[in-house]
Design a protein around this nucleic acid. Structure first.
Length: 305
DNA sequence: CGCGGCACCTGAGAGC
DNA sequence: TGCTCTCAGGTGCCGC
């Protein structure tokens, strides 16, 4: 999502939305007032920035505390392309952008493409942040956040992220640490893959009880989250100069650097470096696959499901 | 009210 | 070849 945010910024900032085409209303179902209202709110509006908190990305519009919010779900993409490009198979929403001043060669469409429609777009009002700090990560973010994203905690890459707040909330929970990592009201931007990678890096088992986590362990965990996210960002960021702003950022570089996720029965890299043979195991946890090394991430005696 | 389970959704791939 | 089944996972809602 951060790859997308950074990639989008140079193409959409300052541009006016001249036309909107909703090809599949299911992709704007989170816009409660319907398609006509969605379009009416966007036509003539100007994009001032691209801001992200966790997996929510929003484009604040000038003139009012209102934003176009995007969530990519599992399979969503935001693409900047010229109208001459053929429609993608799963094209859901097309925004026609004004010609940029002094650069007529700029592609003139922002497209939302989504195969599984877990993601979507909506226009909503913004409210002040509870801490008075910028709403999220952006070029020049205002202390505002979309209503629907106000409950989302700050991202560990956000300069306003507070470890103390996170640690206090974590200790108050009565659950397992992976469930807590995936709870976007505690910490945002961590999904199933990054959770497994961060837990592996911090040598913690997913079922470890949150109320027994020591400060040093929580520090290790948050540091690991940042490290994993930064590494993924560096890998995805290689295609920034393309007109094609790709989501799943998936140049594939990051996938090759995974240490736990998707490596069932493969040797744990940390253990093999010590000359030990330990194979990554896959458990079904929270109806999701969870990957751990049984040797360096041992299951706690009394873990929490 | 906190926690856990599950529906939502589609296409790829496996198995027969 | 074509059918059915399983799997992928972020979010929000519902029930306990």
């Amino acid at each position: 999502m951060e790859v997308v945010r950074r990639g989008l910024a140079r193409w959409v900032r300052g541009r006016r939305i001249d036309a909107v085409d909703v090809l599949d209303p299911r992709s704007i179902r989170r816009h409660a007032l319907g398609t006509e209202d969605f379009i009416g709110n966007l036509i003539g509006a100007r994009v001032s920035d691209t801001v992200r908190r966790g997996k929510f990305l929003w484009l604040p519009l000038t003139g009012a505390p209102v934003a176009l919010v995007a969530h990519l779900g599992m399979s969503g993409q935001l693409l900047v392309e010229d109208r001459a490009q053929p429609d993608e198979k799963h094209l859901k929403v097309r925004l026609r952008l004004s010609k940029a001043a002094g650069d007529a060669s700029m592609p003139d469409e922002l497209r939302f493409v989504d195969q599984r429609i877990f993601g979507g777009l909506f226009v909503t009002g913004m409210v002040p942040t509870s801490d008075g700090l910028p709403g999220g990560l952006g070029e020049n973010p205002l202390p505002l956040v979309p209503v629907e994203a106000a409950h989302i905690a700050r991202d560990p890459l956000d300069p306003a992220f507070s470890f103390e707040d996170f640690y206090r909330k974590l200790r108050a929970r009565r659950t397992g640490v992976k469930r807590a990592l995936l709870d976007q009201t505690l910490i945002s931007g961590v999904g199933n893959i990054y959770a497994d990678e961060s837990l592996w890096a911090a040598k913690l088992h997913y079922a470890r009880a949150t109320d027994t986590l020591r400060r040093a362990e929580a520090v290790r965990l948050v540091d690991s989250c940042r490290e994993v996210m930064t590494r993924a960002l560096d890998a995805g960021g290689t295609s920034f100069d393309s007109l094609y702003v790709n989501v799943n950022g998936a140049s594939g570089y990051f996938e090759r650097s995974l240490n736990a996720y998707g490596r069932e029965r493969e040797p744990c890299r940390r253990c093999s470096a010590l000359g030990l043979d330990s194979r990554i195991r896959r458990d079904i946890f929270m109806n999701r696959s969870s990957y751990t090394c049984p040797r360096c991430q041992p299951r706690p005696r009394s873990g929490r499901w």
